[in-house]
Simulated scan of single mutants.
Amino acid sequence: MRLLLLSNSTLHGQAYLAHAREAIEEHVPRGATLAFVPYALADHDAYTAKVADALGPLGVAVRGAHAGGDPNAVVAQADAVFVGGGNTFRLLRALQRTGLLDTIRDRVRAGVPYLGSSAGTNVACPTIRTTNDMPIVEPNGFAALGLVPFQINAHFLDADAASTHMGETREERLEQFLEENDVPVLAMREGAWLRVGDGSADLGGTTASRLLRRGEAPVELPPGTDVGGLLQTPARYDA
């Protein structure tokens, strides 16, 4: 499988996908037809047009999965798949209802490049249990694509020592997840991404990520870190 999983699609001060342009250009071949899955946001046409504007200069033809009546046919005929960000619960429910979970999984396992950002990165995991999003809709369970065998937390935020907010920090919420589930969590700050291919995995971007495991101290992982070992790590949910 070939995966490029972005923590975010827009970095402060830059245009949509601009911060990952070179990585995307390496990942999606020039001349490719890309199926864009827009279901994490409500306006599918506008979202697809935004992606087309960003990827057109890279020589990539973008087609919305929602266009043409059968999203599975759009994905089946594409050279690459991009699942965009937004609300992860809304995205997963749409993937379930359209049958795209199986179609995308099969295509990616057959070698079609997969690009995900934010919610699109969340659904590449076995479940969406480590999303930050509000459950604005109710999907039929939390099981997702399972393209990687561990969990990712996109848009990871460090605790602000100067803040008077008394709720849990992001890290505390992930530690609560680990109390119930024995599976690594790769917490990616904005500006970070994960590349997977040929049995290897490494971090890229401009910011460090953080690896959390049950019963262990969190570990900082700078860009360029080889995290291929996570692809072989067993995971136990509800354990």
Rank of each mutant, 00 (worst) to 15 (best):
G191F: 00
A201H: 08
T169S: 15
V123G: 01
E175N: 09
T206M: 03
A162H: 12
G146M: 09
F177M: 08
D158Y: 08
D182F: 05
A201W: 09
R210W: 10
E171Q: 14
E138D: 15
R195Y: 12
H155N: 06
S200Y: 09
F156A: 00
L174F: 08
E190Q: 07
D198T: 12
D182E: 14
I136S: 09
E168M: 14
E175I: 06
M188R: 00
Q151R: 03
D202V: 12
F142C: 12
V123K: 07
S163W: 08
T206Y: 05
L186T: 00
G197A: 15
V137T: 13
L211P: 12
P139V: 08
G141E: 03
R189C: 01
N122R: 02
G167C: 09
V185S: 02
V185Y: 03
T164H: 13
G204D: 04
A208T: 05
A143F: 01
P139T: 09
M166T: 14
E179P: 01
A192D: 00
E172H: 06
E172M: 06
G167S: 14
A192T: 06
V148C: 10
Q176W: 07
G204T: 06
D133P: 11
V219I: 12
L174G: 07
R210E: 02
T130H: 07
P139S: 13
G215E: 05
F150G: 06
L157A: 15
L178V: 03
D198E: 15
A187I: 00
P126T: 10
